[in-house]
Design a protein around this nucleic acid. Structure first.
Lengths: 193, 193
DNA sequence: ACCTGAACACCGTTCAAGT
DNA sequence: ACCTGAACACCGTTCAAGT
């Protein structure tokens, strides 16, 4: 029985969520799909293209239009949507970050942020990538700590302070960090206009 | 003839700079060193530990004490030092970012930033990781674009605007992005004190 | 349009054994 | 203290050929 590109992506998403990005190999995905590894290369030029398609799927499933309002609220809302979309799948942030770094994929969160920032192109470009770096970096860290603690590598509760490498994680820390970057953008916007 | 841990790290740094992180495999490093792959496991528990040691070396070679002054200048100066240190080796940022993400390595740039921020621990923690995410993300992007253009995948000059995925790169964009984050931290610091 | 079969050129890691 | 030899269980990708 023959598969479509979309079947492959859907299946890859399941392997990702169940076993993590490190275990999402072409050979494993093919085996799971009941097909030879080489069959995947009819659908995708290479593994990176496959991963980019999966990343697009993760984002498209989680990102909705943002409500009207001042730009600060719209940007903040979109950033939270990105985070939620990536948190919905194991290693979602790392997946999206690599697809983003390679410039592959249809989804264009940086471009989306540029639009939402509603300011001159030059500042918008830098602000958008700064915001995106924060979101991708933060959520990648969150998901790595989630996985580490679920594996038992970290035995203590996340509230205990003072340990080296310890960081505040979760929604509060994300909101605070995001607030910092947005405030910085606001300061620069005011200075220009 | 027998090698030390430090010999291995030095050699790995050369392979990294000449062939990139993707080609820095245990087998290749061993071959370059004139030794069996298994020999490396006497010096390092696994590949990640080796990479963490190489990342430490990159940072220790490039980071110097920062001059006295207001916290904004000290933080800015340290961020530029981190960037320069990572730019000095091919794929330096990606290497440091993964070591950082896994929490390995002796170097603790996040902790260093916390100290330089000179404010209460709670804000400093979030601000430090936000700054670090920006630096690592930005420089990783810079180095990927450098490599892509050196390979000829991007044929146009970096000043031509309007292309999808195009971003302002280089020292100016870094300084601007850094200024945004620092301004945001300043705003939050003022609100707290 | 979609897949098989077989091959090529690789990986990280372990472990007993050697010097 | 440092390394060999050999094995185990994997990788991504190509390409002629099949249906």
């Amino acid at each position: 029985m023959s598969h479509h590109r979309s079947d492959v992506v859907r299946h890859a998403l399941e392997v990702l969520d169940r076993h993590g990005l490190a275990d999402l190999s072409m050979r494993r995905l093919a085996a799971d799909l009941g097909v030879q590894p080489s069959a995947l290369y009819w659908h995708f030029a290479n593994k990176q293209a496959l991963l980019a398609a999966v990343a697009d799927e993760v984002l498209s499933r989680g990102v909705r239009p943002v409500a009207d309002g001042p730009w600060t609220e719209r940007v903040t809302s979109y950033a939270h949507q990105l985070r939620d979309a990536m948190l919905a799948y194991r290693d979602g942030a790392e997946l999206v970050a690599t697809a983003q770094a390679f410039g592959l994929g249809e989804a264009d969160p940086a471009g989306r942020l540029v639009d939402l920032l509603e300011c001159d192109e030059e500042l918008a470009q830098v602000a958008a990538t700064t915001l995106l770096h924060f979101v991708l970096g933060h959520v990648t860290d969150e998901q790595m700590n989630l996985q580490a603690s679920s594996v038992g590598a970290i035995e203590d509760d996340p509230l205990s302070p003072g340990r080296r490498g310890e960081r505040l994680m979760g929604t509060d820390a994300f909101a605070t960090g995001l607030g910092i970057v947005v405030a910085g953008v606001a300061a620069h916007r005011g200075a220009k206009v």
